[in-house]
Design a protein around this nucleic acid. Structure first.
Lengths: 239, 239
DNA sequence: ATTTCGAAAACTGTATACGAATAATCACCT
DNA sequence: AGGTGATTATTCGTATACAGTTTTCGAAAT
């Protein structure tokens, strides 16, 4: 059939069995997580509907659902990415310190053998991407690694909570990934976490993810400091 | 105009300034929380729309939003109350133990003087309702109390996370509230928590909410055991 | 009496349309 | 030239309509 259409139905063709709203929702989630939606973009139901070749209603449903899930924020004119400020990022690190140690402990007990092998492979991908200086693939590999163990968390409520602010985590990660100096810290942190998973050591997994979150916060703060230093001269003129 | 209509617009007249979807949503939340929706009831958008005298769309929006918030569950025929899985309830108690101690600590530091006074008044309401045997008002007072301190949690990400599974918490609460024997435990638990808030004692608040969650879990497990005991004989004939 | 097949009813998802509210633009006045 | 008011355009909420799907009820046949 018409696989050569721009991306009207082709984007939706992947989600067979779902209704249009859900398919649009999933496509938009993917775009948000991939960073394809700019901070200035305004998602309007009519525009989304036109892009996917459907009426306003499915687009509207998808956007409202995304807003309710925290992926988007309703504004007076269309939906926009929720504003993540410095304070909120620190709050999320706080939340991660509360949740992720337990989550990693559960994952250490819940990961199947094949999942362990997949994590191992993903970790090798990450290491390879780092050595190649391939930042995008490193980012992707880390994302897959994280999704891999989070999906093995047996407490589904906890798992869903982790997944919910994953997008904010991604945003912060993008900042820290920008500095290649952080890459070894990230890869080694994941490697140590993986070792704990492989040995089924829930305690070690708990400790190491906590350490990993602290390291991530330190890296973020350093990046933030650096960004502030560069921004201050231009921002100084405005009282 | 037609203020004498059955309860089409009269139910909605309370929520001035909101759109119809939000008003219907709020009314239905109230009904669910009051237990006016039976486990066998199926909420269909056309019926809801007819009752409120509006078209399907606002009703549909409200129902979908309720479903997404966890108040309802979509089924093949209308929306129904979500069946609360025993496993999931235990998971949520786990999550609460992770999050609420920190949240209570932050609330102890963040509550304003007037908010403290409001909590005090609410606690008195709860105590009065308990003495009167007024289960509905006791339930409401406890809900207001909890909302009161949760709203004072300075970490907004943590606060939103707590609010997100508040509905499941409510469902479990409804089970434990059903046994009047639990009422003193609940009220005293809140009172101890309030004392910590009033004294700005973050450590005590942390400890007491943790104790409170454990007590709640114990009460739930007892109620669950009791329910199972009664259900087993009738279920025995099948399978 | 039970089962099976079919028709009618109900429900969901989507399309289209219309009115109201709000933001943006432009013209006009000072 | 800058501010102010009016007009236009965009967007949202809601209404109505239609098609596809599922369910339920009833009738007929075994």
């Amino acid at each position: 059939m018409g696989e050569n259409l721009p991306d009207l139905k082709s984007s939706l063709s992947s989600g067979v069995g779902q209704n249009t709203s859900a398919q649009i929702h999933d496509v938009l989630v993917g775009r948000i997580q991939k960073g394809e939606i700019g901070l200035k973009d305004r998602l309007v139901d009519t525009a989304v509907a036109a892009e996917f070749g459907v009426s306003r209603m499915p687009a509207r449903d998808a956007l409202m659902r995304l807003a309710h899930e925290g992926y988007l924020e309703p504004s007076t004119k269309g939906f926009i990415l929720p504003r993540i400020d410095h304070q909120e990022i620190l709050e999320i690190f706080d939340l991660r310190r509360l949740l992720e140690p337990r989550a990693a402990a559960l994952a250490a007990q819940g990961l199947s053998e094949v999942e362990i092998l997949l994590l191992d492979a993903t970790l090798k991908d990450a290491r390879f991407a780092m050595e190649e200086g391939d930042q995008e693939n490193l980012f992707r590999a880390c994302e897959i690694f994280r999704n891999g163990w989070v999906n093995a968390v047996s407490n589904s409520s906890l798992r869903k909570t982790l997944q919910r602010y994953m997008t904010q985590v991604q945003a912060v990660r993008m900042m820290t990934f920008a500095d290649p100096e952080n890459h070894p810290v990230i890869v080694e942190g994941n490697a140590r976490l993986f070792e704990a998973f492989r040995q089924r050591d829930a305690v070690a997994a708990s400790d190491r993810i906590l350490r990993f979150v602290f390291d991530g916060e330190a890296a973020y703060l350093a990046a933030h400091e650096e960004a502030q230093k560069h921004k201050t001269p231009t921002a100084a003129r405005n009282g």
